[in-house]
């Protein structure tokens, strides 16, 4: 009795790996579904993946280089600078938000059919990354525009061999989004309030991540410690690494930042997976 008792409580971890292989089709299908449905019934469809970051970039540039003054001083090419920050931030916040809601949104399936539950946060993050990768073309287009037509205005803008290295911060971003998404999805099952709290947190994150400003331009006065706090934010470093590949003049690849983000991301995944594994059998009682 005791033996079967413990056997019933936990499925061994190696079965999860086997399951992941079996359910790869499900992951594929959910990714496909999320991408297909995201822009269905809108007239421009997939074009919004390009247009949305482009338009928000224009809004941010108009506001912060003209209305609010000197955010752009000392930046190689402010529109590209803003675009990089906004792409990374938006990808992170959307991935984690979607992963957070994924378990609750799939309640009807989870209650009826056995599926490994991590499939839902994982495939939601993956789907968001596919649209993110597509939206990177807008970066290429904007870069090409300034590089070709605005050569005189931005002499420091150079095309470098480092550009393809953006894949490194993107991978870090994926790990971080997945880890945080797993943690949030568990929390959201037990406490729905997390959805509202996280909404506010994302707003905070938008301001503490240097999307439209440069930390060295900030007038911190005596509060230098504030600068250190900003650098605790892993997104700060992902944005920084990303920009160091795109705007090579003005940013250096920071190995310390890289190590910090890598450790932070892997840590978040370990915590997220452990938390998820421990709590997943209780999901069904709460959704």
């Amino acid at each position: 009795m005791n033996e079967s008792n413990s056997a019933a409580k936990k499925i061994p971890l190696k079965n999860y790996v086997k399951n992941a292989y079996k359910y790869r089709y499900l992951i594929q299908e959910i990714v496909r579904k999320n991408i297909k449905l995201q822009y269905r019934n809108s007239f421009l469809g997939m074009f919004w993946t390009f247009l949305q970051p482009l338009f928000t970039m224009i809004v941010l540039v108009l506001m912060f280089s003209n209305v609010f003054g000197s955010s752009s001083s000392g930046v190689v090419c402010y529109p590209i600078y803003v675009l990089c920050g906004r792409l990374i931030y938006e990808c992170f916040s959307q991935s984690t938000k979607r992963a957070m809601r994924s378990i609750r949104n799939s309640a009807s399936i989870i209650k009826k059919v056995y599926v490994p539950k991590y499939v839902y946060p994982l495939s939601n993050v993956l789907a968001n990354f596919v649209t993110f990768l597509i939206s990177l073309t807008v970066l290429v287009v904007v870069f090409a525009f300034f590089y070709i037509f605005q050569r005189e205005a931005y002499p420091d803008l150079v095309l470098s061999w480092k550009f393809p290295l953006i894949i490194v911060p993107i991978l870090l971003l994926f790990l971080l989004s997945f880890g945080c998404g797993m943690i949030l999805s568990v929390l959201n099952v037990f406490f729905k309030d997390i959805e509202y709290i996280y909404e506010v947190f994302c707003m905070l994150l938008f301001y503490i991540t240097p999307v439209f400003y440069k930390v060295s331009n900030l007038n911190l006065g005596g509060k230098a410690w504030f600068g250190y706090i900003l650098k605790l934010n892993p997104l700060y470093w992902i944005v920084d690494l990303f920009r160091s590949c795109v705007l090579v003049n003005g940013f250096d690849w920071n190995w310390k930042g890289f190590a910090y983000v890598l450790a932070f991301s892997v840590g978040s995944i370990l915590v997220g997976c452990y938390f998820f594994y421990k709590k997943q059998d209780k999901f069904i009682l709460h959704i």
Partner: peptide, 18 residues
């Protein structure tokens, strides 16, 4: 999702390939 797309989604939920 349309009926056709749902067939593949439901099949995958049961662990079958496309």
């Amino acid at each position: 999702y349309s009926g056709k797309e749902n067939i593949f989604l439901y099949g995958a939920t049961m662990g079958y390939s496309r």
